[in-house]
């Protein structure tokens, strides 16, 4: 069985994100980058499936510039069997549609039985690429997975939905996107990090995949949101109860 795990390179979520002066993108100088935390969960799950089964190949995929090499080496150190970089020369970040088109082409080359990826990337928070890919492939999808179990030729997936935990069965091949509680990703050991330095990262030019990059969503401008309020520190409980009673009435806010 082959599992494809697309990984996105994103700024570390603990960092304070600021907009560049021209308002067209974030200021990413000095920002540390990591594998998107949801993709790291997908990778962990794929590695666990590989550890439990025989003959499971885990292929980590990155899309972008040379900068992605570091995250793909991390994926190899964590246990991916192979790493594949789809090189693009677009300066701006690709949107979910273009990512799905490129992944579609990678799937055609690699022929995996399963694509496991994060439900969203914590930079654009779009939550689209997995669904777009599944739609393009005509494969079943199971989004927001918190449990994955192989049952014969099907996969049983527990999904975290607004209504509660929904359990569905999907046939293979399928696209599964991962939620937070699926697993706790491991850390790479030092020896495996050193070993991963010498492994080959396969490269394909996006243009070789025959995909035309046509942005669907154009970033016009960005602004930093300041949510700081001046907090009135209260001296005692009675003051807090007074404020609660004053503000608890009335209809729900419709402020954005």
């Amino acid at each position: 069985m082959k599992i494809l795990v697309p990984t996105k390179r994103v700024p570390d979520t603990d960092q304070r994100i600021r907009v560049r002066e021209d308002g067209r993108d974030i200021d990413d100088s000095n920002l540390p980058f990591v594998i998107n935390p949801f993709d790291a969960i997908a990778l962990e799950e794929a590695i666990r499936i590989a550890e439990q089964g025989s003959d499971v190949e885990v292929v980590a995929v990155g899309i972008g510039s040379d900068l992605y090499e570091q995250e793909l080496r991390t994926a190899l150190a964590l246990g991916a069997s192979r790493a594949l970089l789809v090189e693009t020369d677009t300066p701006q970040q690709l949107d979910s549609w273009n990512v799905a088109c490129l992944l579609d082409a990678v799937v055609a080359r690699e022929q995996p039985q399963l694509v496991l990826m994060g439900k969203q990337a914590v930079d654009d928070d779009a939550n689209q690429a997995g669904q777009f890919l599944a739609a393009r492939l005509g494969w079943p999808q199971a989004t927001f997975a918190s449990k994955i179990e192989f049952v014969g030729s099907q996969i049983r997936v527990a999904r975290e939905t607004d209504a509660g935990i929904e359990t569905i069965l999907v046939s293979q091949p399928a696209v599964i996107t991962t939620d937070l509680r699926l697993n706790e990703p491991r850390y790479a050991s030092l020896p495996s990090i050193l070993k991963a330095r010498h492994k080959t990262i396969e490269r394909i030019l996006a243009s070789e995949l025959g995909v035309i990059i046509e942005p669907r969503i154009e970033l016009v401008e960005m602004e930093t949101v300041s949510s700081e309020r001046s907090c009135q520190m209260l001296d005692n409980l009675d003051q807090l109860v007074t404020q609660i009673l004053e503000h608890a009435g009335g209809p729900a806010s419709d402020a954005p």
Binding site: W97, D125, Q131, A135, D162
Partner: peptide, 25 residues
């Protein structure tokens, strides 16, 4: 919602992927 991310997101994938999510204004 999780419904629209899942179902409408996939429909968007069938319709050319021209989608903006979580719009606030």
């Amino acid at each position: 919602s999780t419904f629209s991310k899942d179902v409408v997101g996939r429909a968007a994938g069938l319709l050319g992927g021209c989608m903006a999510s979580d719009v606030v204004s």
